[in-house]
Design a protein around this nucleic acid. Structure first.
Lengths: 187, 187
DNA sequence: TCCCGCATGTAATAAGTTACATGATTCT
DNA sequence: AGAATCATGTAACTTATTACATGCGGGA
């Protein structure tokens, strides 16, 4: 007798894809780029996930394939179905699952006494550079949201996610300062 | 001919375990609790990782097993070896790998227009509660670091990781306010 | 013609969790 | 005796990435 499944599967990638398809019909290739270009710091999907999930979603009737257009090569475009919209809405409404963090820089810093002096300082410096760069990118997106994307019905939700990134990175810069101060005081 | 490995494996769990063993010799059970109790919001390890890794680490000479003590049941205690310390120090010194985020609440909010009105507000409220709770827990740890753990040689590094958590959660509370404001303005 | 961008798809592998099986010791 | 806690270990599964194989269409 096969063992029963342990718990309801999580499947966040399916809903990421379904969500992306509410913006516009897309191919697997488009989806990859959509996440890469618009959601880089908040979500990512790889081909190894996208294509099999698209196949499953189609089999379940949550997406449908657009009829192939002439001269579009091998391109296969998918759009979300009403059933897909319902499934997505249900998932969005369900409580957010708490994922225990695995933040590599903190693990390294927690044990940094084991490494050569200056190691913690170097990681903090790289971290500061990373978040400064992100802030610059967020500012560019914020500008687009205020202008060309101002009329999009999702605009307010996109601003919210952007604000998360901005406030998060600003806090990380403040943390870099505090961490360096702690290190200096300890010497 | 077998294909060559694609890239150097990541193996962060090995180093988390090695790091924990620099604090004190521990059993697999101890390690689980160590992460759960001390690093909950920053790192986690499950038994399914811990026991096999301990076995491998021992085979590689990076940890060694303490001779079994009388009346300690089945307990097997491990301590880090000099080779293990070297391997750990090397890993800590290596640049931090950037892991693209997969932040579920942001994914849900990004597409929240697809869900019933009030969904975004509910997620934000739960998120605020979560971070308020974390701040309380951080305050308790901060107190311990100032008193009973003040003399620990790792103290400054532990304060740094704690500061990360505190500043991060404070920023998340500020974001909750801003997100709610954005939502109100949009109505 | 050759390269690039668009495009689909999969095999191998990595990384991790959950739930279970099992058993010893300590506390009430 | 029974419950709780300490303790080890693994099988099944889930989730995800990477690198590759393959191919079309357009422009230099």
């Amino acid at each position: 007798m096969p063992r029963p499944p342990r718990r309801t599967p999580v499947n966040r990638s399916r809903f990421a894809i379904l969500g992306a398809l509410t913006i516009a019909p897309m191919s697997g290739y488009d989806l990859r780029r959509f996440f890469e270009e618009n959601l880089a710091f908040l979500w990512s999907e790889s081909y190894g996930q996208i294509y099999p999930i698209l196949r499953d979603l189609k089999a379940e009737g949550l997406v449908e394939e657009a009829p192939p257009e002439a001269g579009a090569g091998r391109r296969r475009e998918y759009r979300i179905t009403p059933a897909g919209r319902t499934a997505l809405a249900d998932w969005i409404a369900a409580p957010v699952t708490f994922v225990p963090g695995r933040i590599e820089i903190l693990l390294k810093l927690f044990f940094a006494r084991q490494a050569a002096p200056g190691t913690a300082e170097a990681h903090i410096a790289a971290f500061r550079a990373e978040h400064r760069e992100r802030l610059a990118r967020y500012a560019a997106v914020e500008e687009r949201l205020r202008t060309e994307l101002a009329a999009f019905p999702d605009n307010v939700y996109w601003r919210m996610t952007l604000a998360y990134g901005r406030l998060g990175s600003e806090a990380m810069l403040a943390w870099c300062d505090e961490a360096e101060r702690l290190l200096r005081d300890a010497r």
